[in-house]
């Protein structure tokens, strides 16, 4: 049994705005019979370019119908710029939450909305971009990357709940995990590094980074940098040589030195110049 909120049940049993606007300004169709759910969203703008009416037709389970109904309610009165900010999380929140296994229903809503706005703006239907990862449900690596990044997903099951990928034969599980690792790798690795460092290790790593990476780069312009102190995550330095008199030294410090140290030591580092 699925645990649906009262709001989901209400939108399922009494769906709002069922139908198709005949002279719609925007039309978005996503999903298919094979996939088990599909949504056709249509909207009409008023003279101020706000959404006057939005209607849906959905083939799918209770939460797919409820998500579609909720979306049409959310859309009314919005400008397209406001509407395009609606995320799948917003749709789920509007319904008081969806079971994790049903998050793909909210993604269906967002996808239909994007397509509908795209059709209004005259953007040609996007060709399938990226490579198909899940053959059962026709999900590409780009779609998986997006949903992983936007929703902070960490395992294959999550991805299946959000975009269905991996919910069929299961052959693509390894590839999905690779994508998750790839996306999360960028975010997780520095954190790990930070945790693992003791104060002494950190100071050592800062010194190494300065002498190996930063000093040679500054030296090209006749400048130099000296480490004065490390206080927690605050790195206090003194710029020397041409850097000391350069009007752009503040930029160098923040945009280059600090970025480099954050990348290679810890992402909470702040660089300050001793006065």
């Amino acid at each position: 049994m699925w645990e649906y909120t009262d709001k989901v049940k209400d939108h399922f049993l009494n769906p709002r705005n069922v139908g198709e606007i005949k002279d719609a300004d925007g039309i978005g169709e996503v999903g298919s019979l094979a996939c088990g759910d599909a949504l056709k969203l249509t909207f009409k703008l008023d003279e101020n370019k706000r959404i006057k009416d939005a209607q849906f037709q959905t083939f799918g389970c209770a939460s797919a119908i409820a998500s579609s109904s909720a979306l049409t309610e959310m859309l009314k009165g919005l400008t397209l710029e406001e509407a395009e900010k609606i995320s799948n999380e917003n749709i789920a929140e509007y319904l008081g939450g969806l079971p994790k296994e049903k998050m793909h229903c909210s993604v269906l809503g967002r996808d239909a909305l994007e397509k509908a706005i795209g059709s209004y703006r005259g953007e040609s239907e996007k060709k399938i971009e990226g490579e198909i990862v899940c053959e059962c449900f026709g999900v590409t690596d780009l779609e998986i990357k997006r949903v992983v990044a936007e929703n902070g997903l960490i395992n294959v099951e999550d991805v299946t709940d959000y975009v269905k990928a991996g919910g069929g034969c299961g052959k693509c599980h390894e590839r999905i995990q690779e994508i998750i690792n790839q996306i999360n790798g960028i975010q997780i690795q520095p954190k790990k590094k930070e945790k693992a460092l003791t104060n002494i290790q950190k100071i050592k790593l800062i010194q190494e980074t300065l002498s190996r990476e930063i000093q040679p780069a500054l030296a090209k312009d006749g400048g130099d940098i000296e480490l004065i102190d490390v206080d927690g995550n605050k790195v206090i330095v003194k710029l020397r040589g041409t850097c000391a008199t350069c009007s752009k030294s503040e930029l160098t410090l923040k945009n280059y030195v600090e970025t480099k140290l954050r990348e290679l030591v810890a992402d909470s580092i702040e660089v300050e110049e001793v006065q």
Binding site: G36, C61, C136, T160, G167, G168
Partner: peptide, 10 residues
């Protein structure tokens, strides 16, 4: 159908 069993395919 898909949606009742937790699996997504019929």
């Amino acid at each position: 159908s898909a949606c009742t069993s937790g699996s997504l395919e019929p």
